[in-house]
């Protein structure tokens, strides 16, 4: 059974952390993953940096630019991760834009992920329709879970379609925005979280965008299965480095 599916069955609210591979320094990828696991994080999204991350706010853009300057490439990331399953047992997801994956070759990319022990992918600019028509069979052949986003503007019919294609969880974007930390959620978010919860979807939902601390984590997971923190984590690691990870994670859960 895929590690993500198993994790989703656990009777707890899940904390997932996004970080950019090769940031702050090129060889930080594996130490960051290990430190996050040690601090009790449930699941990780490893960001494959892209030159033009158009769904991301300034924090993740800047970390991506830096990671590319550091020399991060798709091949380099796979090399860094080749022995990751010797020490890391939590679910690992690669989050990246479609063009680098297309250049690597979708089939080759999926094969490599499966060899390494990557459990799933999040590709924000690969729409569910294109995935369903062209790539779903390849992903499933390699045992990969593909995660789709929904937003407050996504129609009910489309959410139902996304639910039917999802084989893991649904990434629920908290508000109409690019990625970035917020200090709290308003009434509009609460209504949206409730509306989605009442749809009784097959796939559990994990909330992302705008989660930054214990308060927003709690608000996001009142109805949802878990939450993802990205920009706030990147800001922290930029300031404090790997040694700041444990205190950051313990401050959330």
């Amino acid at each position: 059974m895929n590690r993500i599916s198993k994790k989703l069955e656990e009777n707890k609210k899940l904390l997932s952390i996004y970080f950019t591979a090769g940031y702050p320094a090129i060889e930080d990828t594996v130490p960051v993953i290990e430190a996050l696991q040690d601090s009790g994080v449930d699941m990780l999204e490893i960001g494959l940096p892209f030159s033009d991350p158009l769904a991301d706010g300034p924090t993740i853009q800047a970390s991506s630019t830096q990671a590319l300057k550091n020399g991060m490439t798709t091949e380099k990331l796979f090399q860094q991760l080749k022995d990751i399953r010797k020490t890391v047992h939590i679910p690992l997801i690669i989050m990246g834009y479609f063009n680098p994956i297309l250049q690597y070759g979708v089939e080759a990319f999926c094969q490599k992920c499966s060899d390494i022990g990557i459990d799933g992918l999040i590709i924000p600019d690969l729409p569910v329709d294109v995935y369903h028509e062209q790539y779903q069979a390849i992903f499933e052949k390699h045992g990969l879970i593909n995660v789709f986003l929904i937003t407050p503007q996504t129609s009910e019919a489309r959410i139902r379609f996304i639910d039917s294609v999802s084989n893991g969880f649904i990434y629920m974007v908290s508000s109409a925005s690019v990625t970035g930390a917020k200090s709290n959620f308003g009434d509009a978010q609460s209504e949206y979280f409730e509306r989605i919860a009442n749809m009784n979807l097959k796939a559990p939902q994990i909330v992302g965008f705008g989660i930054s601390n214990a308060e927003t984590f709690k608000a996001a997971t009142t109805h949802a299965k878990g939450a993802i923190i990205g920009s706030a984590f990147i800001k922290m690691i930029q300031e404090k480095g790997i040694k700041g990870i444990d205190a950051f994670v313990k401050g959330i859960q």
């Binding site: 892209f50 030159s51 033009d52 158009l54 590319l68 490439t73 798709t74 091949e75 834009y97 479609f98 063009n99 680098p100 994956i101 297309l102 250049q103 690597y104 600019d125």
Partner: peptide, 18 residues
């Protein structure tokens, strides 16, 4: 490749960075 929401010809590194 893919740029600004469109599949087309684009100038990029072998690694897919624009």
């Amino acid at each position: 490749g893919i740029i600004h929401g469109c599949k087309t010809l684009l100038m990029q590194t072998p690694d897919g960075q624009i």
